[in-house]
């Protein structure tokens, strides 16, 4: 029983299924969440391949920065909403959470508040949606487990991976990186700097006067 192989099968196939979800999902926010899941599972795959530093890096950069950025964009741009409702959709989300928190901390009976909220959710049908979603996820999980089992038992996979030390150790990585590839590191740093400057420039917006008074003040200046 090669547990390494089975694990690899399960997580690999699961990742594929979730990736399919990215492109299939109806709402862009769902796509973003699926992307998140894919990136996480990718980190697990990296770990399975003895690239532990890269796995951590994956979570930090991809999941922690990139995916978050994307989710921010999806929220802010209200992808698919009608124009002039940018602010309202994002704010509505926040307003909902903050109002729930206010209600939670202000209510006398916490349990009652939660049960009330739960009933409201059921009435709105959100619970059924969540259950359906969970059910779908479970199905995919089952599917990947099944397929991996099938694969494991049907083919004679090459099990022999060279028995190496922990090659993905950060010590080794650091040594190669800063000795052999110093220049590349510097250039990457410049690249990132350029990207930052470029993004700031591109996203810079002219200040629109929102109130009449503010506009007058701007003119007087």
């Amino acid at each position: 029983m090669d547990y390494e192989l089975i694990t690899a099968f399960i997580f690999g196939l699961l990742m594929l299924g979730v990736a399919l979800g990215v492109i299939v999902a109806r709402k862009p926010f769902a796509s973003a969440l699926f992307l998140l899941a894919t990136l996480l599972l990718m980190a697990i795959n990296f770990a399975l391949l003895s690239a532990d530093f890269l796995a951590v890096l994956q979570i930090m950069i991809y999941v922690g920065a990139i995916a978050v950025l994307i989710i921010f964009m999806v929220i802010l741009l209200g992808a698919g909403n009608k124009p002039n409702e940018i602010a309202s959709s994002g704010c509505a989300c926040f307003l909902n959470i903050s109002s729930w928190l206010d209600g939670f901390f202000d209510s006398s009976s916490k349990l009652e508040f939660i049960s009330e909220w739960f009933q409201r959710l059921v009435a709105q049908g959100l619970i059924s949606q969540l259950l359906t979603l969970a059910f779908k996820f479970f199905l995919v999980l089952l599917f990947s487990i099944g397929l991996s089992a099938l694969l494991y038992f049907s083919t004679d996979w090459e099990i022999t991976l060279p028995a190496v030390e922990r090659t993905g150790s950060i010590h080794e990585l650091g040594r190669v990186l800063f000795v052999k590839y110093t220049w590349v590191v510097e250039f990457i740093a410049i690249l990132i700097l350029v990207a930052i400057v470029g993004a700031v420039m591109l996203a810079h917006e002219e200040k629109q006067p929102l109130l009449p008074g503010r506009g007058l003040k701007a003119k007087q200046k």
């Binding site: 950069i61 990139i66 950025l69 470029g198 700031v200 591109l202």
Partner: peptide, 14 residues
């Protein structure tokens, strides 16, 4: 990964 990060940033600005 670094390049991808930079690219996502600029892409999102666009």
């Amino acid at each position: 990964m670094c390049v991808a990060a930079a690219e996502v940033v600029v892409g999102l600005a666009i």
